[in-house]
Design a protein around this nucleic acid. Structure first.
Length: 577
DNA sequence: GCCGTTTTCGGCCCGACTGTTTTCAGTCG
């Protein structure tokens, strides 16, 4: 199996961890971290690029040395440089960096002084009161280390806690309500990865413009849901909320609002790139503004800052340093899709299978949201747990939808199905019933563990049937719960393009499937996507906002998404025969 | 380790808060 981009990124991150603990040149460490980030954001497979002449050298952040190391990994599946580092240090040392409050210096000291080489050993040593004996460590640090190890474990997932965007939304809304009424507050916003609509967030960054900070700070640290105050200052504080989500707040003067919003929205890599543009012009960019000497020359709004560097406004979802700055300078930024561009939703369930509402109720809910159409896509019979429909029941549903459509004005229910792709790539219902549908969404719900080649063939075989229009939730992942099944999505996308079918961007916040990188890959390939909620209730139709966020992170424009079309155009677009 | 219409060497983003500190390093975002 070829090496994936995330494999390479993981190796470079591991190298960076060891180099950092070793006390190596921090810029060298940064080069590895940067390379890891760049590689995981690439919309092409590194293994392919490595096979091409000069395929790797063109990538910003990958120089001669790292290109060579990538080739080594692709051909041998190993990196001797990393293996040498692993001989110098215990392999579990890198994981200790994930404990909050521990950086490379402290980890090195723990290893040197006490021979600690893993989080588990660290926990034992701290519990036994050994850590406090080390210079630079106190009883307080020791206690904090134990707390942080416990906290990380409580959140689960092994690594540092990540929360789905929907969970963060639920937590942050009432907190904002508390802060809005504080004395002197002029503006308030959630910045960070939340504003960039990343699929998960590690914390929420709340930004406040206020002439004075005392009241808003007091309300923040005194909020009911705060279980721990991590830091408390005049302009910056951090807390842990019930459930483990960390929240940070920054209070800035109103004239710095734009600079602060830009700064705290990030991403870090985007900020560094912008500040580097400042350095070249002898300007300093920080969270208070853009400065020439001591004179502030921009920063009241974000637009002002971008304009100063010769760029139009860059939408938060694009700010990952994945080419948006170059695009902005060249006047080639995409006009990102918005919720208002959508004319319908192409994936929804009813009480016929595992949904909670009838087709009529779903139609009314979709119409109320300004849509022109909604595809009813109940499960097919293989999905027994969801009471999937056989041909006979589906025929009944089709008749029922016809009756509803006859009564609806200015709205159409599309007759459809979420058809199971069986293990061998055959379909769960006969062609004869599929012929009576407007649209077929085909998805994988079983046999996740096929080898990559088989899984890929299975899906492509399903797409061979000209009745199939959309491949639903293509990777099968559930964020934070289930990894994607092993499948060559690039190959599937090419197959879809050749056959005139489409892939879904499933907007459900547990799925967000395709991810941003694959959305961009599809766009660059010329493959359009269906943006759908997979609604199981009327309220679920509102989950579309998460899909829009993901689509925007993938640089998608209205034209890249098929359900921005009026119904007659959509029908034409999906016709395969 | 990367990068260069100022540079192939010498730069590489910037500031707040904590803890153990008597002036600052470490960590974080």
């Amino acid at each position: 199996m070829p090496i994936s981009n995330s494999d390479i990124a993981g190796i470079f991150d591991e190298v960076a961890d060891f180099l950092e603990i070793k006390g190596d040149n921090p810029f060298r460490v940064r080069a590895y971290r940067n390379a890891s980030r760049v590689v995981s954001g690439l919309s092409r497979g590194v293994a392919d690029l490595a096979a091409e002449e000069k395929g790797l050298e063109g990538i910003p952040g990958i120089g001669k040395d790292l290109a060579e190391k990538i080739r080594t990994i692709v051909t041998t599946k190993r990196l001797p440089f990393l293996e040498a580092l692993k001989k110098e240090f215990p392999p579990g040392l890198g994981a200790m960096l994930k404990v909050r409050g521990l950086g490379p210096k402290k980890v090195a000291a723990l290893h040197r002084g006490l021979g600690i080489g893993s989080v588990e050993e660290l926990k034992k040593a701290a519990a036994a009161g050994k850590v406090r004996e080390l210079p630079g460590f106190s009883v307080k640090t020791e206690r904090s280390i134990l707390e942080e190890i416990e906290r990380a474990k409580a959140i689960g997932g092994g690594g540092p806690g990540r929360f789905k965007l929907v969970q963060a939304e639920e937590k942050v809304a009432p907190l904002l309500g508390k802060l809005e009424g504080a004395v002197g507050v002029e503006e308030i916003a959630v910045a960070g990865s939340f504003r960039r609509r990343a699929e998960t967030v590690g914390d929420v960054d709340i930004l406040v413009a206020a002439a004075s900070s005392a009241d808003v700070m007091a309300r923040f640290v005194g909020y009911d849901d705060v279980v721990k105050v991590l830091a408390e200052g005049a302009t910056k504080s951090s807390v842990v909320l019930r459930g483990g989500l960390q929240a940070d707040i920054r209070v800035v003067p109103p004239e710095s609002w734009g600079a602060a919003l830009h700064y705290f929205t990030g991403s870090k890599a985007h900020n560094i790139a912008v500040r580097l543009m400042g350095v070249k012009r002898k300007l300093k960019v920080n969270e208070y503004g853009v400065f020439r000497g001591k004179k502030m020359i921009a920063g009241r709004t974000e637009e002002e800052i971008y304009r100063l560097f010769g760029m139009p406004y860059i939408e938060p979802e694009l700010r990952e340093d994945r080419g948006e700055i170059q695009a902005a300078l060249a006047g080639k930024l995409p006009r990102l899709i918005t919720l208002g561009d959508l004319r319908g939703d192409l994936h929804a369930h009813t009480s016929e299978s595992d949904g909670r509402f009838t087709a009529l109720e779903m139609a009314e809910a979709a119409k109320a949201r300004g849509y022109d159409y909604l595809a009813i896509t109940d499960h097919s019979k293989r999905v027994t747990i969801a009471r999937g429909l056989d041909a006979k029941r589906l025929a009944g549903s089709i008749k029922a939808i016809d009756r509803i459509n006859a009564k609806l004005r200015g709205f159409t229910l599309l007759k459809s199905v979420e058809l199971d792709i069986l293990a061998d790539g055959s379909l769960d219902l006969p062609d004869s019933i599929l012929d009576d549908l407007d649209l077929v969404v085909a998805s994988v719900h079983y046999n996740f563990r096929l080898p990559k080649e088989k899984q890929t063939e299975r899906v492509i075989r399903a797409l061979d049937n000209p009745r199939v229009n959309i491949f639903g939730h293509p990777s099968g992942r559930l964020i934070g719960e289930r990894p994607p099944y092993d499948i060559d999505l690039e190959k599937v996308m090419r197959a879809a393009l050749e056959r005139g079918c489409f892939l879904e961007l499933n907007a459900h916040p547990d799925r967000l499937d395709l991810d941003d990188v694959h959305c961009k890959m599809a766009k660059e390939m010329g493959l359009k996507l269906a943006l759908s909620t997979d609604a199981h209730s009327a309220d679920d139709l509102d989950l579309m906002r998460f899909g829009i966020g993901q689509a925007r992170r993938g640089w998608l424009e209205a034209d890249d998404v098929i359900n921005t079309r009026p119904l007659p155009e959509l029908r034409k677009l999906i016709r395969r025969r």
